[in-house]
Write a protein that binds this DNA or RNA. Structure first.
Length: 575
DNA sequence: GCCGTTTTCGGCCCGACTGTTTTCAGTCG
């Protein structure tokens, strides 16, 4: 069984969980957590690095010991250290650690004093009132544990960024009209444009007598108040989203925004840097001894450690600090750089508008060109086109291009990649198109090797321009199929074709790390809406967010090119 | 367990809130 980075990271995290319960050295525990984070964020598979004989101790947070453990996991599938720990403490105990409000100390007490091994036993003990008798526990803690256990049973999933946006916008609008409130800003992973949001961090500045904390707790979408103080409050919204509100002084706004935007890894790196300058950075500002020297703006915080302001999307400690130091931060792509959209559907397959309606809507978005890319016959549920219907559509587009002047309609298709890597349309028909978008819509469960080979074969077909939604994931619904995307990207570089970043917020596929890899390999990325109705062009902004997280600049993106240049690039992939 | 122009030992980010405490530990982000 191939071991992926996520598997290794999970093992390190699990070891850290056990060590916490055992009360091990906290810095040793942190070392495992740091390593897990490093491994999870790597763009390259560790097994490939090992195969290439690369030195794993070069990776941040990976020393001799952990490098050896990675080797062990890659060879045996597990770590003896973990097996030993599992023998000492039942794995179900670790599950209890995941409950909010229960940290290692309490879990250990529950385990030792009440012999609680499982969530069920925990719930039972709480119901029987046995927990309140423990030292350091009380009746309220017992109730909270009961609540947390019930909530855990329902298991909340992360919110797609597009879903979170709805709740964020209305909450911010509400907070802005609270008397005395001056500034309101969303921070956290939302501001960093992550594809999904775990919980939401909001910052406010307000006049001294502003009732903002009280009003926040009284917001009518709030289902429960978790905690509430003078400067910090946490609530659950009815939709299941947890929101943390922080109130900060105006002179600390930048420092707080920087702090709560994260990521955690980025902040740790920035603070470590600050220590080298003899400075202390916290959410209130930048301090030398007790004196504040910066913090009103984010820019001032970064300046205090000789850095330029870094875009939130880059703040993942994936090289942005080093790049900033060397004055080679990317000039990130913006929505206005997009000149057209190369993947959309009409009523001919499973879309809701006509070609003309899509073209007119595209004109309103300021696009120079669009490509109509219907499904092919194999995807019968979407009423996919066969050769005859596609040829008819080609004629229709020719006619429309005579009439419409503002937007050029390109002829394309989203052709299915068949099980053996052939495309679901004869070459002589594909040859008549401006570009060919191809994608996998079947056989998601193929083994990784086979799936990868299938896609590489498809890319080698004479007419192949863009690989659409390369991993096939549907956020919160369907995992990505097993595929070696690193290989796919290298193959795209060699073949001279392109990869799509599908901007549909349910897909956001390619993900950030692979966008960055594509850029490094010189593979242009097409940021497309995959619109099924004309409103869907609005989704492009989510794709831009993801592209920015992947360090993409205007020149790294195919559809920022003017039409003439685009056509030249497309022609090279066709025949 | 990692790391190092302060380098092989001794640090490692740090403040707010809660509950159970009478001065603070545990948890969280």
């Amino acid at each position: 069984m191939p071991i992926h980075n996520a598997d290794i990271a999970d093992i390190f995290d699990e070891i850290a969980d056990y060590l916490e319960i055992e009360g091990d050295n906290p810095f040793r525990i942190r070392a495992y957590r740091n390593a897990a984070r490093t491994v999870r964020g790597l763009g390259t598979e560790l097994k490939d690095m090992v195969a290439r004989n690369e030195d794993l101790t070069e990776l941040p947070g990976i020393g001799k010991e952990l490098a050896a453990k990675i080797h062990e996991i890659l060879t045996t599938g597990t770590a003896r250290a973990l097996t030993r720990l599992r023998r000492r403490i039942p794995p179900t105990v670790v599950e209890i650690l995941k409950l909010p409000g229960l940290g290692p100390k309490r879990v250990r007490t529950l385990y030792h004093d009440l012999h609680i091994l499982t969530l069920d036993q925990l719930t039972q003990a709480a119901q029987q009132g046995r927990i309140r008798a423990l030292a350091g526990f009380g009746a309220r803690t017992e109730q909270q544990i009961l609540k947390a256990a019930r909530k855990h049973a329902q298991r909340r999933i992360r919110f797609k960024i597009s879903d979170a946006e709805v709740y964020v916008d209305s909450l911010i609008a509400y907070l802005k009209q609270v008397p005395g409130v001056k500034r309101v800003a969303a921070a956290g992973s939302y501001r960093r444009c992550r594809d999904t949001i775990g919980d939401l961090d909001i910052l406010v500045t307000a006049a001294g007598d502003s009732p903002v904390m009280v009003c926040f707790a009284a917001y009518d979408e709030v289902s429960a108040v978790i905690s509430q103080g003078a400067t910090r409050a946490s609530v659950w919204l009815r939709c299941g989203l947890q929101v943390d509100l922080r109130r900060v002084a105006p002179e600390s706004f930048g420092a707080a925004l920087q702090y709560f935007t994260g990521s955690r890894a980025h902040n740790i790196a920035i603070r470590r840097l600050a220590r080298q300058y003899g400075l202390k950075i916290n959410e209130y500002g930048v301090f030398t001894n007790e004196r504040r020297i910066a913090g009103e703006t984010e820019k001032s915080v970064y300046q205090s450690v000789d850095l330029d302001w870094i875009s939130p999307e880059l703040r993942e400690n994936r090289g942005e600090i080093e790049a900033c130091r060397q004055k080679r931060l990317p000039r990130l792509i913006e929505l206005a750089d997009i000149r057209g959209d190369l993947h959309m559907h009409t009523r001919a397959s499973d879309g809701h508008n006509s070609i003309e309606e899509m073209a007119l809507a595209a004109g309103k978005h300021g696009f120079e060109y669009i490509a109509i890319a219907e499904h092919s016959r194999h995807l019968s549920v979407a009423h996919g086109l066969d050769a005859r219907r596609l040829l008819k559509q080609i004629d229709e587009i020719d006619r429309l291009n005579q009439q419409l002047k503002a937007v050029t309609i390109l002829k394309s298709i989203e052709v299915d990649i068949l099980e053996d890597g052939r495309l679901d349309m004869p070459d002589e028909v594909l040859a008549r198109l401006d570009l060919v978008v191809a994608s996998v819509h079947s056989q998601f469960n193929m083994a990784r090797e086979r799936q990868t080979t299938r896609i590489l074969r498809a890319m080698d077909q004479p007419y192949f321009t863009i690989l659409a939604h390369p991993s096939g994931r549907l956020i919160n619904e369907r995992d990505a199929y097993a595929v070696d995307l690193e290989k796919v990207i290298r193959h795209a570089a060699a073949r001279g074709c392109f990869l799509e970043l599908n901007a549909n917020p349910q897909r956001l596929d390619l993900t950030d790390v692979y966008c960055q890899m594509a850029k490094e390999q010189g593979v242009l990325v097409a940021i497309d809406s995959d619109a099924h109705r004309s409103d869907d062009f609005n989704n492009l902004r989510f794709g831009i967010g993801q592209a920015r997280r992947g360090w993409l600049e205007k020149d790294d993106v195919l559809n920022t090119r003017p039409l003439a240049e685009l056509l030249q690039l497309l022609r090279r992939t066709m025949g």
